[in-house]
Design a protein around this nucleic acid. Structure first.
Length: 838
RNA sequence: GCGGGCGUGGCGGAAUUGGUAGACGCAAGGGACUUAAAAUCCCUCGGCUCGAAGGAGCCGUGCCGGUUCGACUCCGGCCGCCCGCACCA
């Protein structure tokens, strides 16, 4: 009888729902385990990339449940964001309607996957019952000095009168309008994440269950560097130019100073230098993305101003405005040392500036010169540097900082790459920022009793700009302090704001406050967080900061929200474009790579599945034809979870065949009744228990693909084991069913029932391996001659070295390879290898 | 450009973390069953050389070099691809 996936999956999903099997309850008497997958943006279509993520989480949740943990496994929607507004502009549908319709669609798709979520805890961040709490948090941040206002640069589309996301700036132009983008200075809200730089950096060490690469990326992102700020006097001016450098030791190699196009000095000079103003305007056309700025051709504009070297009053340096100097880092100004910085070197070559080396390699002489490559190795000796000559780089740094401090020309300092988090967005579909601008009282927080500040529904997208801003009534309010006519803040929060605390909301999703203290104290931190590597820095760093900010405002007693992190690889797929250059969904591409009109399709490279490029594979057809379990197992079985997965349709058939084989194995053998205990050390029992131990270990380590391979090996063995005694066969089949349970829960429940059990497999404990069955008496040892495999050898376990080498020397293949020569050296690794060196 | 990662058969990958490279699967080819097909089952399957065969040998983990008795694994240099770069989420 073929396995009926559709009926079976519906049956068990309703059984779990009916018994509230996965409802989580705060119970301090039980050990808890909080499993969380990064919640999705409701784009409207659940694709295989999402499902890969959620399936991994479900395996962990079901596995930990079977191990006796009180498991919290919730799901919700990261529901504010730009695509809803784009949909409104393109097709006139309201962002709210679009979003809730998408949520309904995706919820249904997700429920058909049979993931063990506690659906009673579902949240959507666009709901006022969610965002009202973050408005309160913001007011608390404001009181605590964590939130503040400052000016910052944005990408401005002059045609659409909107701020563009970096993603929407393509080659310096607005994606929709095609108009050249300008940078504009806007007054915006910021959170002081930089107050927590050191804490966020130091605590990375404590995150033992995070991938090393993510911790490294965060460390580099925070970018703590020790250096110095140095003041250069300017010829003919009273003010000084402050620069930051990590290489004060190279000060004698300085060739120029460079300031950011946004430096106050640049603005001042541009006011009376039209050519400079034009240069700055050109820099502003690059956009705000650091990648764009860094990859743009390095250019500078000589201001004509001369800076006086702090250690030599007779030494002048030209001051350039340079497009690669960032106002946000250090002092927004640098001194350039071409010999010891590659970028400075290229700049110096371009503008014919001197390249004077001041550090040389230990083995180089005084004639050391720099060619096409700057000498950046910190292991070197100072020369051409007056009182620093002969010193190592660290010594020179110390000494020169002492000197400039004595001269009052600067001081040692620490700079961070990390910048404060700008949370203002000039958009409609986000959480309103709860402040009011009053002509007399300034910025006034919305009183707590007036929260939430709700988004108005009656908005239009038919003209450029922020709909909140041109809403006829919404922004006009009375000042809560003086009662005069005032104006609401029309900016909304960055959507990272919502995702920075949703894991806490899941602990008490219906609480009148953000969350109940007892609930977060019990459930947090998240024991296992699972999501894409693309979130390695921003979302995860913001959440770590936000948790600390909440702690400092008395919300909870916790610094790190995620005790364990697993970053899964992305699911990739080829991209397709039709004859007009529009993206196509894979199902729109016919055989022979033509579109619906018979035109040739351009097949692009494989990339991360994303809705914008339409290279997504939906699940409907797979679930329809093969069932959720088949899709789940396929997503787990082939690729290691941390690696990217190239989606192909081939292979799904193979998994479906396996599903049916397993089903037949569980239902078509005559077995002793349930409860029959197997004993003894039959080889099949040994194999069964080895697999139990290995799969348990694999699941602990997120090696789902290996776990699947092992379970398949077990079922292969059971299938052709005509000589396996009945009780052992039952033990083996039950083990296979229980081990596969977290991955294919519906099939496993059905098989468990077919095996004669009246319980839910979801309520059964995890199988344990009998230790005595795991040790083998005999081992296979590889025998090498000069490191090359020549034979293998069966030896009793833990045989001593003499026995092993004697047995090895007696082997025919070994004597042949040794060709009569004596062994000069014998290396014996017990139970593993004998290597004879001749 | 900068930061982080990855690279193993035709394909996805495994390799006890320095100790038998290719587990498990996909695809392909051959065969059995069948009137036929599907389903199922069995066999072969990194490359090359020698052998009728059992088998034997050489090469092989992106490329070049190094460390080691022994390297997919460690080190140095290169090439290619992926992720992130602060307003996509």
């Amino acid at each position: 009888m073929a396995y009926d996936s559709k009926a079976t999956e519906a049956k068990w999903q309703s059984a779990w729902r009916g018994r509230a099997t996965f409802a989580a309850r705060t119970d301090p008497a039980k050990p808890k385990y909080y499993v969380l997958e990064m919640f999705p943006y409701p784009s409207g279509k659940l694709h295989v990339g999402h499902v890969r993520n959620y399936t991994m989480g479900d395996v962990v949740a079901r596995y930990k449940r079977a191990q006796g943990f009180n498991v919290l496994h919730p799901m919700g929607w990261d529901a504010f964001g730009l695509p809803a507004e784009n949909a409104a502009i393109e097709s006139g549908v309201h962002p709210k309607d679009w979003t809730y319709a998408n949520i309904a669609l995706m919820r249904g798709q997700l429920q058909r996957m049979g993931i063990s979520y506690d659906w009673a805890r579902e949240i959507a961040t666009c709901h006022p019952d969610y965002y009202r709490h973050e408005q309160k948090m913001f007011l608390d941040f404001l009181k605590a000095g964590i939130a503040y206002r400052k000016e910052s640069w944005v990408n401005w589309d002059p045609e659409e009168h909107t701020v563009l996301a970096n993603e929407q700036v393509i080659d310096g132009r607005g994606w929709r309008s095609g108009a050249p983008v300008e940078k504009r200075l806007l007054s915006q809200w910021f959170l002081r994440i930089t107050n927590y730089s050191d804490e966020l950096l130091d605590a990375l060490k404590t995150l033992e269950r995070w991938p090393e690469r993510v911790r490294l990326m965060q460390e580099k992102w925070i970018g703590r560097s020790e250096g110095a700020r140095v003041f250069f006097a300017l010829e003919g001016r009273a003010d000084k130019l402050e620069v930051f450098t990590t290489r004060p030791d190279t000060l004698y190699g300085a060739a120029f100073c460079a300031i950011s196009p946004h430096h106050p000095l640049a603005a001042e000079l541009a006011a009376r230098d039209p050519a400079l103003a034009e240069f700055i305007a050109e820099c502003n056309r690059i956009g705000t993305s650091e990648a764009a700025i860094e990859t743009a051709e390095k250019r500078g504009y000589d201001t004509g101003i001369r800076a006086i070297h702090p250690l030599d009053p007779n030494w002048n340096l030209p001051v350039y405005v340079a497009n690669f100097v960032l106002m946000e880092y250090g002092a927004g100004a640098i001194f350039g040392c071409p010999a010891h910085d590659q970028r400075d070197l290229e700049f110096a070559r371009k503008y014919a500036l001197p390249v004077k080396p001041v550090v040389r390699p230990r083995d180089a002489g005084a004639s050391f010169a720099v060619g096409a490559e700057a000498f950046t190795d910190p292991d070197g000796v100072l020369f051409n540097s007056d009182f620093l000559n002969g010193l190592s780089v660290p010594e020179a740094k110390k000494k020169i900082i002492a000197r400039i401090e004595a001269l009052g020309a600067g001081e040692g300092t620490v700079a961070y790459r990390l910048r404060d988090w700008g949370v203002s967005r000039q958009r409609y579909w986000g959480c309103p920022i709860p402040v009011i601008h009053c002509g007399t009282c300034g910025i006034v927080p919305v009183p707590e009793k007036d929260l939430p500040v709700r988004l108005p529904d009656d908005v239009t997208f038919d003209r450029p700009g922020n709909p909140l801003d041109h809403h006829p009534a919404w922004k006009h309010v009375a000042c809560p302090v003086c009662g005069a006519a005032a104006r609401r803040e029309t900016d909304t929060f960055d959507t990272f704001f919502e995702s920075s605390w949703y894991f806490a909301r899941f602990c008490s999703p219906r609480a009148a406050t953000a969350f109940e203290r007892a609930d977060v104290d019990y459930w947090l931190p998240v024991d296992q967080y699972i999501g894409g590597i693309e979130h390695a820095v921003l979302h995860l760093l913001y959440s770590r900061f936000f948790t600390r900010a909440l702690r400092d405002c008395g919300y909870l007693d916790l610094a790190e929200p995620f005790a364990g992190l697993f970053t899964q690889g992305m699911v990739c797929h080829e991209t397709y474009k039709d004859g007009d250059g529009n993206w196509l969904f894979p199902e729109q591409v016919m055989a022979g790579a033509v579109d619906a009109h018979g035109r040739a399709v351009t097949v692009g490279r494989s990339e991360k599945m994303s809705k914008s490029k339409k290279n997504v594979v939906g699940l409907e057809t797979i679930v329809e034809n093969y069932g959720a379990d088949t899709a789940r197992l396929y997503l787990l079985s082939d690729s290691p979870p941390e690696r990217d997965l190239e989606w192909t349709d081939a292979g799904i058939e193979g998994v479906w065949r396996y599903v049916n084989r397993l089903w037949r194995l569980a239902t078509e053998r005559s077995l002793p009744p349930p409860g029959t205990e197997a004993d003894g050390d039959h080889p099949a029992r040994r194999a069964i228990h080895r697999v139990i131990a290995a799969v348990t270990d694999d699941l602990d380590k997120f090696r789902f693909n290996r776990a699947v391979a092992r379970i398949r090996e077990l079922t292969n063995l059971l299938e052709d084991g005509a000589d396996i005694p009945g009780p052992v066969l039952r033990e083996g089949i039950e083990a296979a069913v229980r081990l596969i349970g977290p991955m294919m829960p519906h099939l496993a429940e059905e098989a468990w029932q077919a095996l004669g059990h009246g319980t839910l497999l979801a309520d059964e404990p995890w199988p344990t391996a009998e230790a005595a069955l795991l040790v083998e008496d005999s081992v296979t040892v590889a025998v090498q001659v000069n490191g090359k495999l020549r034979a293998t050898l069966q030896l009793p376990r833990d045989a001593d070295e003499e026995t092993a080498s004697a047995a090895a020397l007696a082997l025919e293949g070994v004597t042949r390879a040794m060709a009569g020569k004596p062994a000069r050296k014998v290396i014996v690794v017990p139970n593993r290898i004998v290597n004879l060196v001749v």
